[in-house]
Amino acid sequence: MDEKKLEEELKKIWDETPISHSDSEKEVCWEQFQSKAFSSKERKFKPWRYYAAAAVLIFVLVGTGIYFNSTSSGNEIILAENTIENTSSIIKKIVLPDSSRVELSPNSKIVYASNFATNRKVEVSGEAYFKVKKDKKHPFQVFCNETTTTVLGTSFTVKGYARKEVTVALYEGSVQMNVKNQDKKWILKPGEKFSYGNNTPLVTEFNRFTDFDNQKLSDVGDYIESNYSYKVIIPQEYYNQRITVRINKKEDLKTIVQLISEMYNLNFTVNENLKQITFQ
């Protein structure tokens, strides 16, 4: 098969293969592929590369689809082999292959590649809270609309629905923010929030703690019930015990329960079926 015929056949396969992108997006992707696979120099000296390119193209197209994310550092590609969507009315807890944890809000979804251990890229639609496992060799990146959040190990929320403002709120660690087609980078500190809407980036502070100042212990129980959906049972004689404590709004429930247990020398049991914590 001559070069022109091969190029025509590849274009036919590209156009006929179902991909979750518009015709204009597919055409742009084809032009990028064509410019690389069929450059004048390579046609002249290395025709075998066309066949290798054809094999790669066909292999990719018969997969589950391609998600293209443009960042200031270039095009990032995530093979959409793993999609998790939360269609329920409560938060869905997810453990990613690298042991990072995600709390996925209702009407939200994430997409990540099958080779996640070495390709720690996640695409978010909606709202999700991430608690990232540290891995210096493989930075963790979250793509949401036109923004990219890059981390090594930290906890933060990402919120961005289609055609709406994206917000990233940092609770622990450090993250770097990038916006498509912009060279500037923003480094967030804990307690800072990055917002991007109407082509305008903004960094502001937010309160990442809930403070209890000489309040009743039962108030902490009410806080747990409201934010973690676990009913808390405290012995009657401890109801009016006073407590002064600062709690990270995204703190693990286990940490809060253990703190109360140690402060008041109480034992506790957790009933996962009833979603109930009993101190005694």
Score class of each variant (00 low, 15 high):
residue 164 K to F: 03
residue 108 S to N: 10
residue 8 E to R: 14
residue 17 T to E: 07
residue 113 A to D: 15
residue 221 G to Q: 06
residue 214 N to E: 12
residue 132 V to L: 03
residue 143 F to T: 04
residue 10 L to E: 09
residue 38 F to G: 03
residue 89 S to F: 12
residue 217 L to G: 00
residue 69 N to M: 04
residue 45 F to H: 15
residue 40 S to D: 04
residue 260 I to D: 03
residue 175 V to L: 14
residue 196 Y to R: 09
residue 194 F to L: 12
residue 140 F to T: 04
residue 209 F to L: 10
residue 22 S to T: 08
residue 82 N to R: 08
residue 279 F to H: 04
residue 159 K to D: 02
residue 193 K to I: 02
residue 180 K to V: 05
residue 130 F to Y: 11
residue 113 A to I: 11
residue 101 R to D: 01
residue 163 R to I: 06
residue 73 S to C: 02
residue 149 T to V: 12
residue 129 Y to F: 15
residue 187 I to A: 09
residue 29 C to H: 02
residue 144 C to F: 06
residue 185 K to R: 13
residue 147 T to A: 10
residue 14 W to S: 07
residue 252 D to Q: 15
residue 221 G to N: 08
residue 58 I to M: 09
residue 174 S to D: 02
residue 276 Q to C: 06
residue 211 D to L: 08
residue 33 F to K: 05
residue 130 F to E: 12
residue 248 N to C: 06
residue 37 A to D: 01
residue 8 E to A: 15
residue 160 G to I: 01
residue 149 T to A: 04
residue 61 L to A: 09
residue 134 K to Q: 13
residue 68 F to I: 06
residue 21 H to E: 13
residue 26 K to H: 06
residue 77 I to Y: 00
residue 116 F to Y: 13
residue 113 A to L: 11
residue 259 L to R: 04
residue 152 L to I: 15
residue 195 S to C: 08
residue 235 P to Q: 12
residue 31 E to Q: 10
residue 187 I to T: 12
residue 241 Q to H: 14
residue 127 E to S: 10
residue 216 K to V: 01
residue 279 F to K: 00
residue 178 N to P: 03
residue 48 W to D: 13
residue 171 Y to Q: 09
residue 56 V to S: 08
residue 148 T to P: 02
residue 133 K to E: 09
residue 218 S to K: 05
residue 255 T to M: 12
residue 158 V to Q: 07
residue 23 D to M: 04
residue 177 M to C: 06
residue 213 D to Q: 14
residue 235 P to N: 13
residue 278 T to R: 08
residue 80 A to W: 03
residue 70 S to H: 12
residue 197 G to D: 11
residue 61 L to M: 14
residue 37 A to P: 00
residue 45 F to D: 14
residue 95 V to Q: 04
residue 13 I to T: 12
residue 248 N to M: 09
residue 40 S to V: 05
residue 208 R to T: 06
residue 183 D to W: 01
residue 38 F to L: 00
residue 41 K to Q: 07
residue 245 V to H: 00
residue 64 T to A: 00
residue 121 K to R: 13
residue 120 R to A: 03
residue 182 Q to Y: 02
residue 63 G to F: 02
residue 48 W to F: 10
residue 164 K to Q: 10
residue 206 F to D: 08
residue 141 Q to M: 13
residue 32 Q to F: 05
residue 56 V to M: 06
residue 122 V to Y: 01
residue 159 K to I: 01
residue 56 V to P: 02
residue 211 D to I: 08
residue 160 G to A: 01
residue 42 E to I: 11
residue 255 T to W: 07
residue 59 F to P: 01
residue 71 T to A: 07
residue 58 I to H: 05
residue 88 S to P: 00
residue 100 S to E: 09
residue 223 Y to D: 00
residue 238 Y to N: 15
residue 205 E to V: 00
residue 205 E to Q: 10
residue 216 K to G: 03
residue 203 V to M: 12
residue 69 N to Q: 05
residue 99 S to I: 04
